[in-house]
């Protein structure tokens, strides 16, 4: 269970990206966060694994206070939280295998991992992760020869290597075309249902959110505007979140 308690984030330049956000996520939920660009979605996701330090508030994962963790504890906690990025964040020149293996760094012996030596079972795990996302044959390719959709699947495989309890997905499909978007989100949905991994996913399009989410949260200027089921968003709510001029897609 993930509890977000009164989390705020004020950047150095004075931007208030998150304003007293609180909610609770039950295990196994597929929670989608929607909102305009700059509404604080990315900041919220990054506060959960403290890639960004929240200014105030508490984040508690299964009874452990993430916001109070020491650096060593934080690395332990981060192993349990997988993350998928908008721009995939792969090392383009490295092989797919090495990129996937990067997801396991928190578990591996640091010195052996620096030399690129991995135990056999880890290689097996990486192979299974690539199989899960449907690209087992790409293991030895360089990451930059893959298409955008395939690169994001490598990103998912990398997150799977962590065997996470919680998976954060920061706009995972906004760099992809609509058809590929669905295929990538299907893999995420499969992980959610098959392994009971909690998903926190930020999305741009309401239509995608309504298809995959079990619950939707909407942010506007760092304030939580909405929290409810995918069917509860009506025209009025939509205008509140996206502004008067917005047209639904």
């Amino acid at each position: 269970m993930l509890e977000i308690k009164n989390v705020s984030k004020v950047y150095k330049d004075g931007t208030r990206a998150l304003n007293n956000v609180s909610f609770t996520v039950q295990d196994g939920e597929f929670l989608v966060i929607i909102g305009l660009s700059g509404s604080g979605k990315s900041t919220l996701l990054r506060c959960i694994n403290r890639l960004i330090e929240p200014t105030s508030g508490q984040i508690i994962l299964d009874g452990t206070d993430i916001t109070a963790a020491t650096p060593t504890e934080l690395r332990q906690i981060r192993r349990d939280i997988g993350m998928i990025f908008q721009q995939f964040n792969l090392v383009k020149r490295s092989s797919v295998m090495r990129n996937v293996m990067a997801g396991r760094l928190g578990y591996l012996n640091p010195w052996l991992s620096l030399l690129g030596i991995f135990p056999k079972e880890e290689r097996e795990r990486a192979r299974r992760a690539l199989e899960t996302v449907g690209i087992p044959d790409k293991a030895n390719n360089r990451a930059d020869v893959l298409s955008g959709g395939q690169q994001q699947r490598v990103g998912i495989a990398r997150a799977l290597m962590q065997e996470p309890k919680l998976l954060l997905a920061d706009e995972p499909v906004s760099a992809l075309d609509p058809a590929t978007s669905h295929s990538v989100l299907k893999y995420i949905e499969e992980i959610n249902q098959a392994s009971n991994v909690t998903i926190l996913c930020s999305l741009h399009f309401l239509s995608l959110a309504r298809t995959y989410a079990t619950r939707i949260i909407a942010l506007k200027d760092g304030i939580m505007m909405f929290d409810g089921g995918p069917d509860e968003i009506n025209e009025k709510r939509f205008k509140e979140i996206y502004g008067e001029d917005a047209v639904r897609v």
Partner: peptide, 21 residues
Amino acid sequence: DEGPIEAAVAAGANRLQAIAY
């Protein structure tokens, strides 16, 4: 590209591992 550094840190890598990977 700073992205891969962020990804490695998010996966629980320490500083040396992030540099190496």
